[in-house]
Amino acid sequence: MDFLGILNSTAGFILAPVTIAYALAALGLAVHFGFAGLLNMGMAGFMALGAYGYAIGILSFGLPWYLAALVGLGAAVIFALILGIPTLRLRGDYLAIVTIASAEILRLLFLTKVFDEYTGSADGLFSYNGEFQESNPIPAGTYGFPPFEDTAAMWWVRIVGIIILAVATFAVWRLVNSPWGRVLKGIREDEDAIRSLGKNVFTYKMQALIIGGVLGAMGGLVLAMSSNVNQGQYVTSLTFFIWTALLLGGAATVFGPLVGSLIFWVLQAFLGLLFPALAEQGLLFGLSSIQAAQIKFIIVGVALVLIVVFRPQGIFGNKKELTFVR
């Protein structure tokens, strides 16, 4: 078994675009759930909008890549408004069901043949990153050292992704440590109390929904920049994985989602390589290596249960500042 090889490939995920994308989406979920108490179970939908908005903007409307990216983020704003105006008045678990259903509706709309011309239906969209890569200032070639060795194209995706993530994290950190964030946390605790103090609770919740949704769309954007866009990526499980990453790090923290995503992906990559390798050695009770690759998902589920029950504040959360108020 090539243990060093596994560690090497695992380390590569520390800077992978998918890790950055998860971190952005988990940060958005932290704004939603950790700070505003909104149970958004439709993060995959926001991410899909970011990715599809970007790809469709380029392919169907011929926009420059940065404007196409704004189309994706704008789509997330509109989705948040459509979702929020009627549902933010509903009780928490209703919001969860509405958001999960809305995200699934979006996915089915991307899957259907009716809009095949724009969405590519089951095939998804590809070959739209040309212009984005033309803006790449790095000369073609391979850079870095193992395990962080990659093409100029991938480095460009990473650099753009990390810049987006850094700006987003700084903005969220500023927001939640401001009086605005104080009101948001107050709403999480008891929105009637905040209302009785003269704050427009609905506006704050809507702002939080939009900000978190745009962060999710940024995650989808980074994913789209690094590979193809396919509705199969934006399934309900993606939302659940991002929840796991968020809760792992700590929902009511700014840096928890980042570290949570990092741990999530490093562990995913490590286990996803380790178990098949063990299976090939016949060390896993005769499981095939394909079967063994499923074990990591089982572990995600079990981990989610254990975190929520035994360490709901996450790794970095303050024990006193638990987010599970209700």
């Binding site: 149970l39 928490g92 678990d93 969860a96 499980s237 659940f240 929840w243 796991t244 809760l247 499981l287 394909i290 079967q291 499923q294 074990i295 998902f297 089982i298 572990i299 995600v300 589920g301 079990v302 981990a303 989610l304 249960v305 254990l306 929520v308 029950v309 709901p312 599970f324 108020v325 209700r326």
Partner: peptide
């Protein structure tokens, strides 16, 4: 333990993932 409703919901999500992929482990 008097676990909160939101926590219970997320526990059910985790359980769902774990059980679902266990099925896939066995039947592919």
């Amino acid at each position: 333990r008097n676990t909160g409703l939101v926590q219970l919901m997320i526990v059910s999500i985790g359980l769902s993932l774990a059980v679902r992929y266990t099925y896939q482990l066995f039947i592919g």
